[in-house]
Design a protein around this nucleic acid. Structure first.
Lengths: 211, 211
DNA sequence: GTATCTTTCAAACAAACATTTGAAACGAGC
DNA sequence: GCTCGTTTCAAATGTTTGTTTGAAAGATAC
């Protein structure tokens, strides 16, 4: 098969990158595990970094597309409320985690790792991917929760992002029970149970110290 | 000064590790920036990994000690409620972020990076550091919120951890407004504003799908 | 001031790294 | 069955890596 080597490299690399980290994984580890020649990486992807970008794009792009699509649907149907919006924001993540997990248990870590892993390359890629999504959702939540300022909305939404990123990181932490069950709908319900009160709780008066 | 070189290395290394990541930082970068000879690292810390472990320990150990101390105080004074417990859990983090930030703006990232950065060494170190803290707080929250099962408590607390880790990661993200102001008490109040409703919201009936 | 222990230093070490090369093998089209 | 574009391969390239070495310099104690 023509695209076999290329695909084999990508599949093998993403798992190794997830398990060991990008910098801690050598191309030789990848090509040995994939059963291909080491020169194949540079032939098909240009460089080690090119391989990473492609893997990352293939995972992240559909995620944000799905988020935007769900938001579009909601806004066509009327003015979405907080539960609707959080669902549109969280469901694609839960589905992605589930999908990655069935492919390989350690694969969700790849996404979370990309948040911390170095280089301005990643900040460019990730930033570009998430910029539109953020703006759209900030605005929509602004309409849904008029009692909160735009700053407060953005701040709370970043808390939600924190929870989600941590989920990617810790789905399969050895020794700890998984944060997610097998059923996406049940997981969403549980997550909404904490994020909805989080978004809807009244704004805090930043007053004097507690003591 | 006797300990000058040693200290200089540690101070320089933690900033570089925070900015670039452990694997992406070479010992030569560290020793060049620190103005010391490259052999000094192995002389004083045994290895590059030894340097990392020492830096990590010096940051993380006081954090958990402070958490445990605050919890001890609370439990001596009676049965702490959810706000007390969340305060004891979050305040040390906020103080640490503030302290690291004044030392160097990119330093908080070091902590969050350690959560994702690879190797079983890190999982051992971090796991050992946080194991006692987790058990203690799980139990205390169990008494404070009897309506929730132990599993649900643990699950929600991990959501709180997710928010905190994300804060370490994104205090100083260029382009985005900081998630934290300068005042620790005000930041705590804001954080309690979302985490208290999160912990106290009634348990969700995991029912049939929403659609 | 001599002896002893600690710390620094320039230099060299072998191992691992991503990448390149030029030839060999392959496959599709005619 | 020959040709041409694509893909694979073993081998080698030049860096960079963490670590070691043995001698020089500094500090400390008597």
């Amino acid at each position: 098969m023509v695209e076999d080597t290329r695909e084999q490299i990508a599949r093998t690399a993403e798992v190794l990158f997830a398990r060991e980290g990008f910098s801690n994984t050598s191309l030789r580890q990848v090509t040995d595990a994939a059963g291909v020649n080491i020169a194949a990486v540079n032939y098909h992807f240009g460089s080690k970094e090119g391989l990473l970008v492609e893997i990352l794009d293939r995972i992240i792009a559909p995620l944000n597309e799905e988020r935007i699509m769900l938001l579009d649907e909601l806004e066509e149907a009327g003015t979405p409320d907080t539960v609707d919006l959080l669902t549109a924001f969280l469901l694609p993540d839960l589905r992605l985690i589930q999908e990655l997990r069935t492919r390989d248990p350690s694969l969700p870590r790849f996404v979370s790792r990309m948040y911390s892993e170095a280089s301005e390359l990643m900040e460019r890629t990730m930033g570009r991917q998430f910029a539109e999504t953020q703006v759209r959702f900030y605005a929509a939540f602004g309409h849904a929760i008029p009692s909160l300022s735009a700053d407060e909305i953005a701040w709370r939404l970043r808390c939600v992002v924190g929870i989600v990123v941590y989920m990617f990181a810790s789905v399969e932490t050895p020794g700890l029970p998984s944060m997610l069950g097998g059923d996406v709908d049940a997981d969403l319900e549980r997550l909404l149970g904490v994020t909805v009160p989080m978004m809807l709780s009244p704004a805090v008066e930043v007053a004097v110290s507690r003591h």
